[in-house]
Amino acid sequence: MNTMNPVIDQDAKVEKAPEPPAGNGINDADLEGRTVGRPFADAPKFSLRDVEVFYGETRAIKRISLDIARNEVIAFIGPSGCGKSTFLRCLNRMNDSIDICRVKGQLQLDGHDIYDPKRDVVELRARVGMVFQKPNPFPKSIYDNVAYGPRIHGLANRKSDLDDIVERSLRGAGLWNEVKDRLDTPGTGLSGGQQQRLCIARAIAVSPEVVLMDEPCSALDPIATARIEELIAELSESYTIIIVTHSMQQAARVSDRTAYFHLGHLVEVNETNKVFTTPQHPLTESYITGRFG
């Protein structure tokens, strides 16, 4: 695929990203592999050790280790270009389609290596779904958008099964009541917030175990954002959710744990309320108090 991915653009800027305020004397060597807080968990869903990501020569992710627990909501925050989206896209190998991107380190889902050459990426993505920054419904009907995943994976044997899945997913995404009378109209005709909920319905229609969300509200207005945040809270009962966000308020509202990224380093991970009330690392503190970002 030759269209450059937006993620590349972000990470191309890594070198130029705003340096932390001078004077606190922090450099790469101090940050690398020295995450403060509580990065590890027992019997995690994802176990990630010494993860490095390269774009050509540029090192976009610098030896990050992190565990993600079952059914938790974890938020990735940090200034733009800090590598949080890149890191997220490693988890269902969406970076595969970028020629120059290489991933090193150990990434395991339920104890199985994600980047194992024998690993089936289709199966992986069926288990780890994703919602993107901009709503991207297919130019098909609402029904076909949701039914697309179950169809390609052969999850429904009969039309009625498929109908059930579609209804369940749309209900799950809180969209059913708004669209149940016009399932055959194009998905692109919905409002921005509805489109994003449609994309969430599309993702949960294949009953994934994990849902990755890459700034899912950045293109939406506050009311639609609130609606999605409620939805995340509901979904957290049955899914592991990893959400990248620009908004600290959003991270505080929806997540159990928060991870702070800085220039490709994972600086601090902890319970969300601890990160926002008593940050342990000076960089985290600077960021949440708005000194840069």
Binding site: A126, H153, L155, S207
Partner: peptide
């Protein structure tokens, strides 16, 4: 349908 059954279905379709 739980996740295990689901994963099984996906695996079956892969070939």
């Amino acid at each position: 349908m739980n996740n295990q059954q689901q994963a099984e279905l996906v695996r079956q379709s892969l070939k």
